[in-house]
Write a protein that binds this DNA or RNA. Structure first.
Lengths: 224, 224
DNA sequence: TCGATTTTGAGAACACGTTCACAAACTCTT
DNA sequence: AAGAGTTTGTGAACGTGTTCTCAAAATCGA
C-alpha cells in the first residue's frame, strides 16, 4: 500500500497553498488586470512575471498550487486565470471591514481608494473618543466601542483593522474577538494576543523605515 | 589550508546580518524599552522573547549575529543590549524623510506619532497638486515637486516615502532617485523600478487585507 | 505527418530561516 | 571548593521558499 500524498487531483482545488504564494496571488491579480487593460488576452509566464515583478519559475510554481490553468506552448488565458485566482482568494465577493480608531491613520484608511477595487469595503468605523462618536468620516458615521458587537453582527463583518495608539491595541483586539471578528490587521505598534482561531497580520510603519535606515547606515559606512 | 568563513571575530561587528534578523531588531528594541519602563535591568532570552513575541532560540540566534552581548547563567543587561542594537540599526541618530503625496495617507503619515520616538523625522512634504503646495500640514510647508532636489539636498534627506496613487509611483520614484534618495518606502499599489543602489520596501494595504480575506474564506469553507 | 519551436509543470538542487539540543560559562549555596 | 542550577551561544536538524532544469505537451510551417 502506498501512502497517499495530498496532491490535488487537478479538478478539486485542494487546500494547503503556501503562505508565500498566498501573499503573491493579489499581486498576480493586479498584473492580470493591467494586462487586460492593455488588451492582452493571452500571456506567457514570462510576460506575467515581468508585469508582477517576480521570477517566471516562481510564478509557475505558485500557479501550479492552484491547478493547471496554462497551456504548454501557448501560455495562460488572462481572463480565465484572473477568474481562477479571484475565486481562490475570495476576490469575487466583497469583504466588509470595521476600522477601530479614526485618528489620522484610521481616517486615511477609511478614505483609501485602493480598497474598493480589490473587494474591500469599509463598512463601519468605531472609536472610543466621545468627541468623534456620531461624526461622519468618508460618509460613514462613527460608532461607539460599546456598539462594536452590534455593528459587527448587523453587517456580518469578519475583518477588523486596529488603527489606535499602541496602548489601546490589546484592549481593542479583545473587544474585536469578543464581537466575533476572526481576522485582524493591526497598525498599532504593539503585539496583540488572540485565540488560535483568529488571524492577525501586523503592519508597522516605523519598523519599515527603521529597516531602510539600517541599510542607509550600511551604505554610508562603506568606506571600510 | 582551511577556507576562512566570514565569521565575525566577536569584537568586530562584522557585516552580513540576515534580512529576517534585521527586520526583528526594531521589535527587540521596542521590547527592551518596555522592559526598561518596567524597571527591569537584566533579562533572560526567555523574558525578552516573550516581550517581543518570538521564540527564545530565534532571539538568541538573532543577537548572536551582532556579537556576544549576554552573560551565561545571567542573561542580558537591558540598557547595554538596547544600546548595541540601536547602534547596529542606526537608531542613535535621527533620520530625515521626505513624503511625496500629501493626500489622506501622506497627511496621516506626516502626523504619525510613532515615528519620532524611533528616530524618524518627517523633514519635508512634497506634492504635485498646486492647491496643496504652500499649505502647511503638521507644521510643515508643502513644497512643489520641482523643488524636491533642492529640499533633499538642503536637509540631507536619504529616505523617501511614496504616498501617491499607483499611476504616479514610477514617476515619483524616478524623481526621488534623481534627487539623491537611496531608500524608498512605497505605499502606492504599483511596482517601481529603481537602480541597484537604491533600496525599496513596499507596504500594500489592500494586499494585507486580501490575504486576511483568503484565510477568512478558508475558515468559512471548513464544512467539508 | 514530421520536425522545429514554444512554453508549461514539476522534480531536484539550492538557499534561507527556524528550532532543537547541548556544551560551555556563569552564579549561588553549602 | 565543589556541586547544583541557570542561561547563553552555536552546531546540527529540520522546514520553507526559490531557482534551475528539462521532459511533456502544445503550436506552427513545410
Amino acid at each position: 500500500m502506498t501512502i497517499l500524498r495530498n496532491r490535488p487531483s487537478a479538478g478539486s482545488p485542494e487546500r494547503g497553498i503556501p503562505d508565500a504564494t498566498v501573499a503573491r496571488l493579489p499581486v498576480y491579480l493586479r498584473a492580470l488586470n493591467a494586462l487586460t487593460e492593455q488588451g492582452i488576452g493571452t500571456c506567457s509566464s514570462n510576460d506575467l512575471a515581468a508585469q508582477a515583478g517576480v521570477n517566471p519559475a516562481k510564478l509557475r510554481k505558485d500557479l501550479s498550487h492552484l491547478g493547471s490553468y496554462g497551456t504548454r506552448g501557448v501560455g495562460y488565458d488572462v481572463e480565465y486565470l484572473r477568474y481562477q485566482i479571484a475565486l481562490e482568494i475570495g476576490q469575487n465577493q466583497d469583504w466588509d471591514v470595521v476600522i477601530v480608531g479614526v485618528g489620522n491613520l484610521g481616517s486615511a484608511l477609511s478614505a483609501y481608494q485602493g480598497f474598493s477595487t480589490r473587494g474591500i469595503r469599509v463598512a463601519a468605523l468605531v472609536d472610543s473618543n466621545p468627541e468623534r462618536i456620531g461624526t461622519t468620516i468618508s460618509g460613514i458615521e462613527v460608532s461607539a466601542m460599546a456598539d462594536l458587537k452590534k455593528v459587527v453582527a448587523e453587517r456580518e463583518i469578519s475583518i477588523g483593522i486596529i488603527a489606535t495608539p499602541g496602548e489601546a491595541a490589546q484592549e481593542v483586539a479583545d473587544r474585536l474577538v469578543e464581537a466575533g471578528i476572526t481576522s485582524i490587521l493591526n497598525f498599532a505598534p504593539a503585539l496583540v494576543q488572540v485565540p488560535d482561531n483568529v488571524d492577525v497580520r501586523k503592519v508597522d510603519l516605523s519598523i519599515e523605515l527603521q529597516i531602510l535606515a539600517y541599510h542607509e547606515q550600511r551604505k554610508a559606512g562603506e568606506a571600510s
